[in-house]
Write a protein that binds this DNA or RNA. Structure first.
Length: 824
RNA sequence: GCCCAGGUGGUGGAAUUGGUAGACACAAGGGACUUAAAAUCCCUUGAACAUUUUGUUCGUGAGGGUUCAAGUCCCUCCCUGGGCACCA
């Protein structure tokens, strides 16, 4: 039996199996309508140069799911690719004088090696990279289709401009006036830009949440819901003194009789007719403020009286019109009615400018004195000073007043959304060219489908300024009009890289297809069953991807509306309490750890140290602990390899107590590991259970395993434990499996089944309580009756000490758990 | 300010429906092996008090409550993390 143990040479083992898997096409997936498919996808990386620990964690979780589901009998699809357009490539090009194309391709090579070195089970035949023409031509194709449908359009609008990135940004990418990429403040610029009409899908995006409830983290759904920001209200036509319409939008029509002033956005076209120099100066100043300054919290509301008067159609009140820095041109009509008595912001503004306050909703329990008001009354109440609506509860008045306005013809119910159309133009080079042409005669002309792709030139010179080099490239920019053949100019803006990642999950099914997708492939594999990635994309990528999926569904390209059935958002990897970053100097390089401990140890650490949704604190000692556990498995299997008989089964054998216990522990382990991985996605406890099993195995006397019964139990242990370890630490598990003489590939083995009859303890420990306090414990047979339990408890010496001479009020018996005797 | 998640040993974290709090691991201490060390294997390890074993009391952010029984349910408060916050 005791051959000389081999050392655990992890790097040799890992490289051997990685090579083996690649050469045997082990993870190639083929569609098979007779099998149930399972599509696991992790958010594909930007090829920035090297993997970081966040990637490693994300992809380790994904690989565990993929390998596990495969063993559970699903036809698993697990692809990977590259989100390979974007600004860092350009910045690197400027800094180091490397063409973005070269830089990107080199990074992909390097990172692909890193992924393979981790042993991830990707089907590399489905690899797609967004910077390649065979990928981005379909971006352009989609752009044309969306243009045809009016979902892509160009308009002049105030947009977010990031001076550091030298480009415009979508609202989602400039939240709070801060650039998502470089965190500098964005400014507003009036520019003509391309947009996708995501607002057409605002209601769909919101309704789709119903289907995702339960399988997507609630937090993500809430964030999206807030971002979409649906509200219902009333559009009311106020009038200028001249009689012209002056429409506003409000969600509080019940307060319309309390309007004492109006406020208009500084960008509002009506202001062009204002001549007062003081007002003009104010408007100019506010327009130059960054959005960050304008919207910042502590900033006081600024405003100025335009001198214009507005008439309230409900009661004929004439009120002043102010310009205010807090009114947004992009929402509603760019103007609001202000009711200081019932809106905190309006109240503060009115106090600042000495505008009267008019009470129209009173508190029935404690009538309000307008002159004594310290703040707006925003709670529910009853209408006052509101003509025929007096006495109505204000919630009711919302409907009645809306009805009245609609009947009178000066109001209309309206639904408004906070979400804006998605600004997709970028004034950058390293992205997908927008397939549009500007003709002197014909205006905007789309590039005909047959002329796609519009190739992005790769021979670029960055020695100029930081502007996109495309603007200077005559060969790219100058073209002929597809319509009239006359002189024309290409669009030199490129697409937001979030366009690329909005449909890649579907493209993975058929990266080389003649059409955008191979119908059979995409129809079979989509949607993604399990998507895994960071929560930072909640209102960016995850919203855009849902939008694209819906558009593609409407176009008949996808059969389902939602792209990701289930979503897991993994927590960050941190060190010393902070996110790993170069500036903090707390980065741990995956390569170094793999070299020291091997990929299996890194994988195990990523899964064991914290549940996937939580953040994970890096710990060198923790890594060593995982390495030690693998060593324990390695030594145990090596020690007893000679006793292994593949087909041996302890079924029907008469096992002694020790072996019986091992077998029971094994089946209990299978049961909870399966539950933890399959149902709970709590991998740390699954690993803990296997550690317990290994601890139990170490305590068994060698002589026990040397018997025929022992050999059978041991073989059953190996036949179950190694498959269970395979999705976690696939290399060492495969090596041990092979060492035992098995010919079948471990990753192709079925997931072990738990024998329910064995996964049950025949002895349990019960506790005896007196007044809820534990006084004694006892081992009893698992099928003990309630009556026997009570009898034992009453008869137990320690219990007797406590109940002696007291009257027993009540006895609670929980079968198999406890007896609680309640005494006076 | 509003919404959500969380607060458990020296540390990361367990505890599936209210039923033995602290699984598993790290750290620490002890032992075996060794000339010695490393590695490995085994044991101890929430706190306090007492003790020969046994034991008693306290203990899941704080304070109340429900219950035979609360980390788990309810109320109030404190703290941490995340999201939203002029959207009319």
């Amino acid at each position: 039996m005791a051959e000389k143990e081999r050392d655990y040479n992890f790097s040799g083992i890992e490289l051997k199996w990685q090579k083996h898997w690649a050469e045997s096409n082990a993870f190639l997936s083929r569609k098979d309508p007779t099998k149930k498919k399972y599509y696991v996808l992790e958010m594909f990386p930007y090829p920035s140069g090297r993997l970081h620990m966040g990637h490693v964690r994300n992809y380790t979780i994904g690989d565990l799911v993929a390998r596990f589901m495969k063993m559970k009998g699903f036809n698993v699809f697990h692809p990977m690719g590259w989100d390979s357009f974007g600004l860092p490539a350009e910045n690197a090009a400027i800094k180091n004088n490397i063409p973005p194309f070269r830089w990107t391709a080199d990074n992909i090579d390097y990172m692909k090696n890193q992924l393979n070195r981790m042993g991830f089970s990707y089907d590399w035949t489905r690899e797609a990279a967004t910077y390649k023409p065979e990928y981005y031509q379909w971006n352009q194709w989609m752009f044309l289709k969306m243009y045809e449908k009016g979902l892509a359009y160009k308009k002049k609008a105030p947009v977010n401009w990031c001076e550091t990135c030298k480009t415009v940004l979508a609202n989602e990418q400039a939240e709070g006036g801060i650039c998502w990429r470089c965190e500098s403040e964005v400014t507003q610029k009036e520019l003509e830009q391309w947009f996708f009409k995501i607002t057409d899908y605002a209601d769909d995006l919101l309704k789709g949440h119903e289907a995702l409830a339960g399988t997507w983290p609630e937090q993500v759904l809430t964030m999206q819901k807030n971002w979409i920001g649906r509200s219902t209200g009333l559009r009311i036509n106020f009038r200028l003194a001249s009689g012209e319409d002056f429409p506003i939008y409000t969600t509080r029509p019940d307060t319309v009789y309390g309007v004492t002033f109006m406020v208009i956005a500084p960008e509002h076209p009506l202001l062009e007719r204002v001549t007062d120099p003081k007002v003009k100066e104010f408007i100019a100043r506010i327009r130059n403020q960054s959005m960050f300054d304008r919207m910042s919290d502590d900033k006081e509301k600024e405003g100025i009286d335009t001198g214009l008067k507005i008439v309230n159609p409900f009661n004929g009140d004439i009120v002043p019109l102010y310009v205010g820095n807090f009114v947004l041109m992009g929402y509603g009509t760019g103007a609001i009615m202000a009711v200081p008595a019932h809106d905190t912001r309006d109240f503060a503004f009115a106090k600042k400018f000495g505008i009267p306050v008019k009470l129209v909703i009173d508190n029935p329990k404690a009538p309000i004195d307008v002159n004594a008001m310290q703040d707006a009354y925003v709670d529910e109440g009853v209408c006052v000073n509101s003509a025929q609506f007096n006495g109505l509860p204000n919630m009711e008045a919302i409907e009645k007043i809306s009805d009245y306005a609609e009947q009178q013809g000066f109001g209309k119910r309206e639904v408004n959304f906070r979400i804006r159309d998605w600004l997709v133009s970028r004034q950058r080079y390293w992205g997908c060219p927008i397939p549009m042409v500007y003709c002197e005669k014909c205006g905007i002309v789309p590039v005909p489908e047959k002329d796609l792709p519009v190739l992005l030139p790769t021979d670029v010179d960055f020695r100029g300024d930081s502007q996109s080099p495309l603007i200077q490239m005559d060969g790219f920019r100058d073209t002929k009009c597809p319509k009239c053949g006359g002189r024309a100019r290409r669009e030199t803006d490129t697409m937001d890289t979030f366009v690329d990642s909005s449909w890649y999950y579907a493209k993975f099914t058929s990266p080389g297809s003649k059409d955008i997708f191979d119908r059979d492939e995409v129809g079979y594999w989509m949607p993604v069953d399990q998507y895994i990635g960071g929560i930072e994309h909640a209102v960016l990528h995850l919203l855009y991807a849902r939008f694209f999926s819906m558009v593609m569904n409407d176009m008949g390209l996808l059969k389902t509306r939602e792209p990701f059935t289930s979503l897991l958002t993994q927590g960050m990897v941190i060190k010393d309490g902070a996110k790993m970053s170069k500036s903090k100097g707390n980065v741990v390089d995956p390569d170094a750890i793999i070299e020291k401990y091997g990929a299996d140890t890194v994988r195990l650490f990523m899964l064991f140290t914290a549940p996937p949704q939580k953040q994970l604190e890096w710990s060198d000692k923790g890594v060593e602990g995982c390495f030690r556990f693998i060593g324990r498995i390695w030594r145990f299997v090596n020690r007893y390899a000679g006793l292994y008989e593949r087909a041996a089964s302890p079924d029907g054998m008469d096992l002694g107590a020790a072996l019986q216990k091992v077998r029971r522990e094994l089946h209990l382990t299978i049961k909870s590991v399966t539950y933890d991985i399959n149902e709970r996605m709590q991998y740390n406890t699954a690993i803990a259970r296997m550690m317990e099993l290994v601890n139990t195995l170490y305590l068994v006397d060698e002589k026990e395993f040397a018997t025929p019964e022992g050999r059978a139990v041991l073989s059953e242990v190996f036949n179950s434990l190694l498959p269970m370890l395979s999705p976690l630490i696939p290399h060492v598990a495969a090596e041990l499996w092979e060492m035992l003489g098995n010919r079948q590939q471990l990753h192709d083995m079925p997931w072990p089944a738990c024998m329910e009859s064995l996964a049950r303890r025949d002895e349990v420990e019960i506790v005896f309580q007196v007044n809820g306090k534990i006084r004694a414990k006892e081992q009893v047979s698992a099928d003990i009756t309630k009556e026997e339990m009570e009898k034992m408890a009453r008869g137990h010496e320690k219990v007797k000490d406590f109940i002696e001479g007291k009257s027993v009020k009540k006895v609670i018996v929980v079968p198999g758990k406890l007896v609680n005797i309640v005494i006076q």
